[in-house]
């Protein structure tokens, strides 16, 4: 934000913010403990089964990045987590979850399992959304076969892995940047159902976009 006035000159206060107390130390310990637990749990491997029948192993904490998988595991009400490892693979019943897609998804969650969880109420939400993809994510999502790419995004959406859907969204966003309407249509295989007149009217209405400079 390079405007005339910066929003960050926090001369004010967070009105209802609590003053720091000794509780901060306890909070820190609790956080540490939680992190250790996540680390331990990720050593437990669970099996996921694609729509095509392929079975893939994945750390438990990583697998729980999928809200859908996490909910399914919760529903098992299994207190002994190690038993989860020996269970039948969890079936993912959506045709976007192909072998290839699931293999990539497991690769992604295995790399990202220790990311801080996404909190939509968090003040930095906007900042995170606008952040560029990391080098690793860029390489991960740069997939030549568009059908495969769309499988991964649709599968991640089905499995409710918000972070991965976000990576896909930013990737598509980067791909269509600066392209014309016709180019975007061609790339994303969108069928144009406007008459030439209708399309011209929309372009006319949106002329201001190009009038900027």
């Amino acid at each position: 934000m390079n405007g005339e006035y910066s929003l960050d000159t926090t001369e004010g206060m967070a009105a209802s913010g609590d003053p720091p107390t000794n509780n901060a130390v306890d909070d820190y310990d609790a956080e540490e403990a939680l992190e250790r637990q996540r680390e331990e749990e990720n050593k437990i491997k669970i099996k996921l089964k694609s729509f095509e029948g392929g079975v893939y192993e994945c750390g438990l904490t990583a697998a729980k990045m999928s809200v859908m998988v996490a909910n399914m595991l919760d529903a098992l009400q299994e207190t002994d987590l190690t038993k989860i490892a020996t269970r039948e693979p969890i079936p993912l019943q959506n045709d976007a979850v192909t072998n290839k897609a699931l293999e990539k998804i497991v690769e992604w969650v295995d790399h990202h399992w220790d990311d801080p969880p996404i909190d939509p109420d968090f003040d930095d939400e906007k900042e995170r959304r606008n952040e560029e993809l990391s080098h690793w994510d860029k390489q991960f999502i740069d997939i030549a076969d568009q059908g495969e790419l769309f499988d991964i995004i649709a599968a991640a959406n089905f499995m409710d892995i918000k972070g991965l859907v976000e990576v896909g969204a930013k990737h598509i966003c980067n791909k269509i940047k600066g392209k014309s309407c016709t180019e975007v249509r061609e790339m994303l295989k969108i069928h144009n159902d406007f008459t030439p007149e209708e399309e011209a009217a929309i372009h006319k209405e949106n002329e201001w976009i190009y009038a900027k400079d």
């Binding site: 959304r129 059908g147 769309f150 959406n157 994303l188 295989k189 949106n206």
Partner: peptide, 27 residues
């Protein structure tokens, strides 16, 4: 087709669009 973005439902398309800038959405 698998490589056609219209295979995505409205929710997912809306989510993708939410990452676009104001003017890119109009595009």
């Amino acid at each position: 087709g698998k490589d056609n973005i219209d295979r995505f439902g409205d929710d997912l398309c809306g989510l993708l669009l939410s990452y676009f800038s104001f003017e890119d959405r109009f595009r």
